Computed example of a mutant assay.
Amino acid sequence: MSDKPANTIQVLLICGGGGSEHEVSLRTADFIQRELARAPDIHLTRVTMNGDGQLLDGDGQVRELRSDKLLYSASGSAQVVDYVIPSIHGYPGETGDLQSQLEILGLPYYGCSPEASKICFNKITTKLWLSALGIDNTPYQFLCADTPEEIAQAQDALAEWGTVFVKASNQGSSVGCYKAATAEALENALKEAFRLSPYVLVEKCLKVRELEVAAYTYEGELVITPPGEVCAPEDTFYSYEEKYAEGSRALTHVVAEGLSDAQLGWIREASKRAFIGLQLKDLSRIDFFLSEDGEIYLNEVNTFPGMTSISMFPKMLQHQGHDFCTYLGGLIRESVQSASQ
């Protein structure tokens, strides 16, 4: 027998995805599951999506979410689903594909809409939208094909800028990002990036401080935290491994030091403009670069940031004085109540 009250909200937590960020997704789901265990009116069912898109329960049995908003087991039994947490980094969670399915089913869910997710996941469309919103971002070249003409643009960028980052446009969390300072390194990076994506970004490498802001909705109000800072080792950049490995050498500071009031004000304004202009929902982590000459560039918008033991988003939320269970539980209750009206 369950000790949950009769009006329990049935929440489905979907994690995994079967892609390059599968394991990190599981760790984020672990964090969310622990936090929501403190909410007496929320019952959470966790399933893991494999590379074939199947939802597997803890026993490895296939579960199926159908149009009647019930989660079916192989035996034919079913349970109600009131709300979904798509805890998947990369495809199909951050790309908007899973959210599109939930929209079709009419199920409320945690996080951004399909369109906002898709825009922000693609590094090139993000830059185009940021420019349209009047938010500065780093100089770049956009390559749309692995052809000699396009490669020549990348070579020209390397000659002009000295060192560049090569980024597959539709990969998350530093997957498909390479640093190149020589023609040979550039050639190898482009091959790898085009293997992962049909579009590639070649970005000017700047010596910067990496700042991160948590932007989220708490009790109906948009909260934008002061920026924290990621200090990667000098001999590398903040790669996927450095971002999520337990043995990461990167240092994180919940509050960045030494920023002027003007810099803090602009970061807050740009974060607010991005959150509202891109029509984000519930949460995001917005990352900035602060160059040596004081220029501030918005680097990327992460619509479903990591929530592992070393992740910045939950740390900054907590530093703001907000309890994660209260935060997410409030969003769940509000969404379920709105959906029932």
Rank of each mutant, 00 (worst) to 15 (best):
S67G: 09
P92W: 03
L55M: 06
G76Q: 03
V62M: 09
T125S: 12
E64F: 12
D97K: 13
R63D: 02
Y83A: 09
H89F: 02
R66V: 05
Y83E: 07
Y109T: 01
L65W: 08
E103Y: 07
D68E: 06
S87E: 13
R66Q: 15
M49Y: 02
G106N: 04
S67Q: 13
R63F: 04
P114G: 14
K118T: 13
Q79T: 13
D41G: 02
Q101R: 07
K118F: 14
E115R: 15
Q101I: 09
S87L: 04
T48M: 10
I42T: 02
N122A: 06
D59W: 12
S75K: 12
A74P: 03
G76H: 02
E103K: 11
D68M: 09
D97A: 14
L44V: 15
G51K: 06
G53K: 09
Q54D: 09
T45F: 09
G93M: 00
C112A: 13
V80C: 12
Q54G: 00
S67C: 08
D97C: 11
T125G: 00
Y110V: 10
D52N: 00
H43P: 00
E103V: 12
Q54T: 01
C112W: 12
C120D: 09
A37Q: 14
A78T: 08
I124D: 10
Q101C: 11
Q33A: 15
Y91A: 05
I124V: 15
D57E: 03
V81C: 06
Y109W: 01
R63T: 03
S77E: 14
T95Y: 00
I104T: 12
E64K: 14
D68R: 11
I104K: 08
P114W: 10
P86R: 08
G93E: 08
Q99H: 02
T45S: 11
G106L: 09
G93F: 01
Y110P: 01
L98Y: 05
T95F: 03
S73T: 14
Y72G: 04
T48G: 01
Q33M: 13
A116Q: 12
G53M: 03
D52I: 00
Y83L: 05
H89P: 01
Y91L: 01
K118L: 15
Q99A: 06
R63M: 12
T48K: 10
Y109P: 00
L102M: 01
G76C: 06
V62E: 14
K123Y: 07
P108W: 09
E35R: 15
Y109Q: 04
L56I: 01
I32A: 14
T125A: 02
H43E: 14
V84F: 05
D41P: 06
V62W: 01
L55F: 13
R63H: 12
I104S: 02
I119T: 14
R63W: 13
G106E: 05
V47S: 00
F121D: 02
G96C: 09
N50V: 00
G60C: 13
M49I: 05
L102Y: 03
I42F: 02
C112L: 11
P108L: 10
E35L: 11
T45I: 06
Y110K: 02
D82P: 04
G111R: 11
